[in-house]
Design a protein around this nucleic acid. Structure first.
Ligand code: ZN
Ligand code: ZN
Ligand code: ZN
Ligand code: ZN
Lengths: 163, 163
DNA sequence: TTTGCAAATGTTATAATGTTGCAAATTTTC
DNA sequence: GAAAATTTGCAACATTATAACATTTGCAAA
């Protein structure tokens, strides 16, 4: 069962999603935030795909669910999930992925495979430090750091070595 | 004269634009690319504003020029300018800025002030190295690195210290 | 000069992404 | 239970970007 869209590293993705949802519930409870059914469903949908999911992709699945939702429903849910660090928006793709470090204070850095579309979120302290120093050197006060790297993942490199 | 929209650091912005255009002409000639009037005008408009300019902002100015352009005209010009490294697209803003390192091989890193809207492009070798190492550690082959940092520029920090 | 081709532009329509505003429903608080 | 706050439903709209095809332009070979 599961892993129809082969993720970046093989694993039981159903368990992966279930864990993410459990974490999300815990985080929201701790912070007195309401993980309503719609919000939870949106989070689940985003997690089920390791590939970034667009807002209108989410909307389409909600429609299949029988949920007669309009764009604001999805965008509001996504805003909420972002606010609580449960999903990230990938600006270069206009799409969203589940945060793999939810709850922890972190600045994600995303490796986006241009071939298979999978995305891996990393926390790279060296990168964060270098970015912070570069900003400081300009007396700039960073608040939101966005790092998105498009390229080829290991699997796709192996499949197409001469590119 | 000029500098109606105060840039990040004070300077004669007309000269700044003129230099950028001269550089662009040289780069295009060297690479046998045609910097046509529309392309050059779009580049000029983008340079005239230190703040990122949206495609439809460009379109509006072209209309004022009397140039009855449609969206594809602008997007094509922008594609061309990006391809030759003359402008960058800021994904988090859906907008474009002139490249301050045109011709040189570089990966821009952008400091975007959320208060005044100005953008500073840096080349930070330490950041580039750290990113490259982090990607290597995942056996990922980076091709396009996007770093956009939203925050407060020095001037705006000074104006609103307690935020 | 003319002809032929590729690159660039014009034109129309449409797709994709994201927002505003307000009313109704739900949940929380008192 | 009533009042207040949060969340959702809904309709319209705004912004950003692309597709498809016709036309023009720049350039070079015949
Ligand atoms: Zn994260
Ligand atoms: Zn891949
Ligand atoms: Zn640049
Ligand atoms: Zn500023």
């Amino acid at each position: 069962m599961s892993t129809s869209a082969l993720p970046y590293r093989p694993h039981n993705h159903d368990a992966c999603v279930a864990q993410a949802l459990a974490d999300a519930r815990a985080i929201c409870q701790q912070r007195n935030a309401r993980l309503t059914p719609t919000r939870e469903r949106v989070l689940e949908l985003i997690w089920q795909s390791h590939k970034p999911l667009g807002a209108y992709d989410v909307l389409a699945v909600l429609a299949e669910d029988g949920h007669n939702a309009a764009p604001p429903t999805v965008y509001r849910a996504l805003d909420f999930l972002q606010q609580y660090g449960l999903v990230h928006r990938i600006a270069s793709l206009n799409a969203f992925v589940g945060c793999t470090h939810a709850g922890k204070h972190h600045n994600g850095m995303f490796l986006i495979c241009r071939s298979c579309g999978n995305v891996l979120e990393l926390t790279a302290p060296d990168v964060a430090k270098a970015v912070s120093q570069a900003a400081s050197a300009e007396a700039f006060q960073p608040e939101d750091v966005m790092i998105e790297i498009a390229g080829l993942c290991p699997a796709c490199r192996a499949n197409a070595p001469h590119d």
